[in-house]
Design a protein around this nucleic acid. Structure first.
Length: 552
RNA sequence: GGCGAGUUGGUGAAGCGGCUUAACACACUGCCCUUUCACGGCAGCACUCACGGAUUCGAAUUCCGUACUCGUCACCA
């Protein structure tokens, strides 16, 4: 086809496209950002399902853009209307809000490069396609699905590369007359890339995370525009990311194999190439098979996004976990910088795992504990209350009624550089502080006591009767020891260990009895602090409760 | 099958040619601290980096091959 014929073809195929490429380039000018600023994007298709992997990729987008003073935007990739799910887009923006991974620009967030939804950018894609046809880099292809399927079969038998390329690209060199005839016969067509590549040649790609990779040149006549006139992912990616001036395409590494195509597209379109960062998928080692597999929402509930809210995992703690899988050196940094937050950390592609990142639930839980240990009693109260409002209204009400005391309880053993680590999730709080609220403690069944050990309740009674809560920790500590001695117990566990025959037990045994009676458990934060918040009256009441329990 | 990537203790992983007798964290075990539990501290936990070969004075680190795992090869993204 001659130059003129191609122009005629382009006009015939896209008579309604009147804007030129130059006009679009003007409409979407270069961003005015400082040197090194990264423009990233989260570009989901509106199927509505968001999982941990998506969250990770959006998190990376956010973090890299933020620390470089760039922009992170949301673009909806809805070129496939068949996959569209009712409410899918709202679900995506909702998740971004809930998980505090908010774009500063994009669909439903506004910005200069709108529309940020591909279904509203059809004219733009078609304009560039029209230009590509004029230049001889694209052509209409009339092959039927049956034809393509049979080619594929043949290729499979011959064990050659699968796809429409070279001799298989039947409509590549159709004459203008032939195209006209097919169209007047009402034959449907797609627009394919007329790939200038040569698979015998090699191209080298540098990925920000994976490093140097070599591929054969792309030579397949990939579909650019579907029968319905909408673009395929590849074409839309090239156009949108160019026009929106993305600097770094951060996406899942299922895309690396289409890299040669994307690079070729940028070349023939005359676009400045952009950087790619392909992040490894989150995987898990299957307990049964021992194989590494992608995590699935069904088998691994923590992969679904609902899990975190329902189980009361703090968003910030999840961020911490995402950060540790994003940059392998984050965890150590965080542990060594107890006064810093995620925003103080400098993320880098060099520290990003190349292979798959395995999900480690125990690690997440530990991070959560560290997170809580660094929060003040008041913060723990606020956040737990907020969570309970949605998931445990009964408890929320109790928290509200006992606000002052609860904050005091949550604050026990918080000061100093060795804060307690006992809560991992908001949903743990109710159980962990079961002794704090009378309404709940009355129902205590002492099931946390594993053994059926009996305690000397007379001793406990005597102790409680003489209890003076206006003492310092040291005074109290001495008091207990004296009490122990006068009742035949060793003041130090060591003394008891040396000579068990001479004692009934040691101080620890007395404390254990007290703790069990007062809190219904063998583990709890500092006893004196708890008793101080409770007050003597409640302490006495708890002894009676325990006696009732024993007599049952 | 073609193409691309990965493979380091029970787990997540660091490491990018000599400073590694393989960091750190989680788990586990022991000891210590402690009125108890927790927290914390100390110690132990891979004589070795999937396997085979090559390069080198020297390799977990470079190269080649094998095995296994993952990704991809749609008018889905």
């Amino acid at each position: 086809m001659s130059d003129n014929e191609r122009v005629e073809l382009a006009e015939m195929l896209f008579p309604n496209i009147t804007k030129t490429r130059e006009e679009y380039e003007k409409m979407y000018p270069e961003r005015n950002l400082k040197e090194g600023a990264m423009v990233t994007r989260y570009a989901p298709s509106p199927t509505g399902s968001v999982h941990l992997g998506n969250l990770l990729s959006a998190f990376c987008d956010m973090v890299y853009a933020r620390q470089s003073g760039g922009s992170y935007y949301l673009r909806i990739e809805d070129t496939d209307q068949k996959r569209k799910v009712e409410g899918g887009i709202e679900n995506i923006t909702g998740v971004l809000h809930d998980f505090l991974i908010l774009p500063n620009e994009g669909y439903s967030f506004g910005g200069e490069y709108a529309p940020y939804i591909q279904s509203e950018r059809n004219e733009i894609y078609q304009c560039y396609i029209k230009d590509l046809i004029k230049q001889g880099y694209a052509y209409p292809c009339f092959m039927s699905e049956e034809e393509i399927a049979s080619i594929r079969e043949e290729q499979e038998i011959n064990k050659t590369k699968i796809g429409i390329y070279g001799v298989y690209a039947a409509d590549r060199d159709l004459s203008l007359e032939e195209v006209k005839e097919k169209i007047s016969n009402g034959e449907e067509y797609v627009i394919r890339l007329k790939s200038p590549g040569d698979a015998k040649k090699e191209i080298e790609v540098i990925d920000c995370i994976k490093g140097k990779m070599k591929f054969p040149e792309h030579d397949v006549d990939t579909i650019l525009l579907k029968k319905d006139g909408t673009p395929t992912y590849h074409f839309a990616h090239a156009i949108d990311d160019h026009l929106m001036h993305t600097t770094h395409v951060i996406r899942g590494d299922e895309w690396v194999s289409s890299l040669p195509l994307h690079i070729q597209l940028f070349e023939i379109l005359g676009f400045k190439p952009m950087k790619y960062a392909h992040i490894a998928p989150i995987t898990i080692k299957d307990k049964e098979t021992g194989n590494i597999r992608k995590i699935s929402k069904r088998k691994d509930p923590f992969f679904g996004v609902k899990y975190y809210d329902e189980n009361g995992i703090p968003i910030e703690a999840l961020h911490l976990y995402l950060a540790t899988i994003t940059n392998t050196n984050f965890e150590e940094w965080y542990l060594n910088n107890s006064d810093k937050t995620i925003n103080d950390f400098e993320f880098s592609f060099d520290k990003q795992a190349v292979g798959g990142t395995s999900f480690d639930e125990a690690k997440l839980m530990n991070l959560c504990k560290t997170y809580f240990s660094r929060k003040s009693g008041e913060e723990v109260y606020k956040e737990t209350y907020h969570w309970a409002l949605k998931h445990d209204t009964e408890y929320a009400k109790l928290l509200e009624e006992n606000k002052e005391d609860m904050i005091k309880f949550f604050s026990i053993e918080k000061d100093g550089d060795r804060p307690r680590k006992d809560i991992a999730k908001y949903s743990d709080v109710r159980e962990e502080f079961s002794y704090a609220i009378d309404e709940l403690f009355i129902k205590e069944d002492y099931s946390k006591l594993e053994s059926d050990k009996t305690y000397d309740l007379e001793l406990v009674k005597e102790y409680i009767d003489n209890l003076d809560l206006n003492q310092s920790n040291e005074e109290w500590f001495h008091g207990v020891k004296e009490f122990a001695i006068t009742h035949g117990y060793a003041a130090n566990p060591k003394d008891y260990k040396k000579d068990p025959a001479s004692y009934k037990g040691h101080v620890g045994d007395i404390c254990e009895a007290l703790r069990v009676v007062i809190t219904g458990r063998t583990k709890s934060p500092d006893l004196l602090s708890i008793m101080k918040v409770l007050g003597k009256q409640k302490v006495e009441m708890r002894l009676n409760l325990y006696k009732e329990h024993i007599n049952k």
